[in-house]
Each structure stands twice: as structure tokens, then as C-alpha cells.
Design a protein around this nucleic acid. Sequence first.
DNA 1: CAATAGGAGGCGT
DNA 2: ACGCCTCCTATTG
Length: 331
Amino acid sequence: MGSPGCDCVGSTVDLPLITFTESPHSVSAPRAWEEDTKHPRGLISLPKHTVTERSLQGVFRPCFNMFLTDDSSCFLKKSEAVAPLPPFKALEQCPAINSHSLGFVLPSGLDGQVEECCLEQVQSMVLGEVLKDIETACKLLNITPDPMEWNCANVQKWLLWTEHMYKLPQVGKMFQELNGKDLCSMTVEDFMQRSVQCGDLMFAHLDIWRSAACMKQRCTLGDNKIHGTEELWPEADSCCSGQPIHLWQFLRELLLKPHNYGRCIRWMNKEKGIFKIEDSTQVARLWGIRKNRPAMNYDKLSRSIRQYYKKGIIRKPDVSQRLVYQFVHPV
DNA sequence: CAATAGGAGGCGT
DNA sequence: ACGCCTCCTATTG
């Protein structure tokens, strides 16, 4: 099944590269993606890079940013330095990352072997994080990971979600009546035509999903197995069982991903199942996206939570606090 | 003013 | 029947 989304054809375009100014843990933002000319948003021109460096970017870019911030969901917004990604070259080369392609310097005294080993671990972590984030999004949106399989409604969900996650302007209506195949057949220029503001970003996000789907397909075919991928990305049955998700399940999913949603909702006492909704508007919005209810708000969401009082699923904690609830049966 | 609480009717599965 | 969604009034901090 050779889907166009997995059509890992090489291109001659120079891919952008993220760089760290110091070590990945000590800087606040990536400097820029490589561009031949200055990007309209003020990107910096950097030297061209090797094939080894290029081949990873489609998938790994967001992960690099995870190292830079404690919240990966903000990576694109925070960096404000993202150039359009060209058609991805996928992962067939998938080499170990070297410190030069990562753009940071390892502590002195490490020889090449140690460096190689560490970087492979970094690569593995990075890959895992991307797949986990996609898996989470699939669960929460009830869509498949492969954009090629999306119908128009799925595309709209994904667009809404991406807009929300990365605080992008609304572009959903610019992509109406497009299914996943249509979307995947579009070039970055097509995206830019539909949204000058953030077509390039949307294209980049789609590219990441396509790359991940492509890689997963290869993994399931037994080709080029990547360590740990299976457990990181379990089969679709867990995310697309067809059963409509319950609100309490959805909240739990969000709580299980503090990395992504900790700013919206977080555990106060996980053992007791006590959690706090930090941003009621955002949580309601996420729920609305999940249920295709654009008019969802916290007033309605909280009414649904209160329905759980009688059912013994959620209650208010003994010491009642605003926006704090408790699962009656914590995991 | 936003959150809390709960009644009531509607809707899709 | 169930699980919300929506709208509502009243109350609370």
C-alpha cells in the first residue's frame, strides 16, 4: 500500500536546521531554521548542511524544541523562527545525530564513542516524544495517525487542534472540503496560498505527522525497526476503538500528559485523584474540539462534571476549592 | 464576576 | 437508557 504520504522521494531543497546557541538545556529558544534568504519573519541565514543533518528534521524538529522549553506545545510559537519545510525526505537514512547537526557542544572529555552513544539515546528519546504526542492527539481527537486516512471532518479536527496547540490563527475554513489525501498532495506553496499567515507552519506540522505515519508503516512492515517504537506507539485500537470517549476519560488523558496539558489541567494529588483545572477555557475548548462542539464552554463542561457526582465518578474534594475536583476511584 | 450547584428538556447512539 | 449538551436560576466566595 504505497500511499503518497509515504512517498519519501528525495528533493533538492535545502532543509532548515534548528540550532542551539549553547547547550540544549541552557538556552531559551532556537536561533533559526536555515534559509537561503532571509525569511519574512526575520530568520537568520545559516550555512547549508549535510544530508545527514537534513534527513531528520521533519520528524525531530519539535523534539529539539522540547529540550528548550518545558512545554512542547509552545515550541513553534515560542521560537517564532520556523521556515517552511520542504517535502520530507523521511527516515530512510535515519542516521545517528551528531553533535554538530544538533548544534550544541557536548561536555569536553567525551570521546567519539560516548558521544555517539549519548546521541543515539537523544535520538531515541526525541523520536519517542514525537510519537507519543501524536498518539495522544489521536486519542483525544479520535482520528488515525495517518493523515492519508482522514476524511474532511478529521482534517478540520486536526486543523482546529493544531491551531489550538500552537496558538495559530484560525485557518480551518481555508481548508474546507479537503480530506487527508488532498491535504497530503498539497505543497507548501499550496498551503501558503490558503493561509499566508501560517500555511507554512501547518504544512510543517502535517509533514511531521506524515513522516511519523510513514515511519510507523515501515516499522510494522518489519523494515528498519526502531527500538521502542512499538511500545511508544501501540496499535490504533487504543485510540480509535469507536466508543465515544467519556468526559472523565478525556480529563484523565489530559492529566496523563502534563508535558502537553499541564498548563490547562494538572494533578494536585495524583494518589487521591485530586486535580485542578488551571485553565477552564482551554480545557473546555479541547473538549469541544474532541466532541465537535464548537460552542462548548466551561459552564457546560462543569455541568457534565457535576453529573458525575451522582454516579460516583468525580466529586468535589473534602476541602472544596475552585476548579478542583477529585476522581472517586483514583488509578 | 466567575465558579458552583442542580433542574429540565433535547439529541444522538 | 445513557451520556452528554444546552439553557436556566439561584447561590457562593
